[in-house]
Design a protein around this nucleic acid. Structure first.
Length: 273
DNA sequence: AATATGCTCAACCGCAGGATT
DNA sequence: GAATCCTGCGGTTGAGCATAT
């Protein structure tokens, strides 16, 4: 047996809402609320609309706390970050952006951000696939390492890929790991990070933690720490010719990310040398 | 100026899943 | 426990506007 339709489509109006309909719906909801039943609402409010349509119109357009207008750079960065972590769960992403609806975020993604990301990924080449095992630490890592050629990427595109505002507290930077060709360099220990600070470490380890191919391809990475030492690759910074001081940019990001770890001891427990 | 093409975003659709009967 | 109702969600569509040819 199929589902009964939510309303009789021959008897309801469809398509764009008129200002009069908007006023009717807004006035009704401000006075009475939804009454816990969107299906019955249009009849009570005197609208020839489907309940689902009323709900959508209210949630996506008429609500007083809706933010209309273009997305800021900060919002773009947050969407990109969250999409990388949870995918197309627009309602969850929208919940992190005050005044934005899932529909807004989804539209923005489909029309702007997806293209931005695809353009960026055209610069992405798989360079190697490595694994790092440490019996001392009793943990195993399996890491896919990618290198990206940013040499021709404009700085706006580059900036849009980096969560410079660090708005998501779940983002962690437990390690820096850099590969040169297929070789992996050691991951700095917690002790080293605590004693020297991430900036100092990055500056001290120019040859170890930053790839610098003569071809112009260079990259650095940080990793999310998720679910019991399961690492997810994230991008942090590059040696980009468009940046006069790209290495200091990278170091700053590492430091900011390190500061953002709420409980570094807890994060690294079991990891230390 | 006319037409084609691309872009934006409001609105719709169908499904999943929780609540209710 | 099954059937039905209702809400919320993500995917998709298409009208209207902007820009290119």
């Amino acid at each position: 047996m199929g589902r009964a339709p939510c309303c009789d489509k021959t008897k309801v109006k469809r398509g764009p809402w008129s200002p009069e309909e908007d006023n009717t719906l807004k006035n009704y909801l401000e006075k009475n609320g939804t009454g816990g039943n969107w299906i019955a609402l249009p009849q009570k409010a005197g609208l020839r609309r489907c309940g689902k349509s009323c709900r959508l119109r209210w949630l996506n357009y008429l609500r007083p706390d809706i933010k209309h207008g273009g997305f800021t750079e900060e919002e773009d960065n947050l969407i990109l970050t969250l999409y990388g972590q949870i995918g197309s769960r627009w309602s969850v992403i929208a919940a992190n952006l005050q005044g934005r609806t899932d529909n807004d975020v989804k539209n923005h993604w489909n029309t702007k951000l997806k293209k931005k990301l695809l353009a960026a990924e055209n610069y992405t080449n798989l360079s190697s696939c490595c694994s790092y095992n440490s019996s001392d630490l009793n943990h195993k890592f399996s890491i896919n390492s990618f290198s990206r050629n940013y040499s021709t990427m404009d700085s706006n595109t580059f900036t849009s890929l980096v969560d410079t505002n660090l708005t998501n507290p779940n983002l962690l930077v437990p390690e820096m790991l850099v590969a040169e060709s297929d070789q992996l360099f050691p991951i700095p220990s917690l002790m080293e990070i605590q004693e020297n600070g991430a900036i100092q470490l990055a500056q001290d380890q120019e040859d170890g933690y930053v790839m610098d191919f003569s071809s112009g391809i260079s990259s650095s990475y940080y990793y999310d720490l998720v679910n019991d030492f399961d690492f997810q690759e994230k991008f942090i910074g590059v040696d980009d010719p468009n940046y006069s001081s790209s290495f200091s940019n990278y170091s700053t990001l590492v430091q900011l990310q390190a500061n953002n770890i709420p409980d570094i001891d807890q994060t690294f427990r079991g990891f230390q040398n």
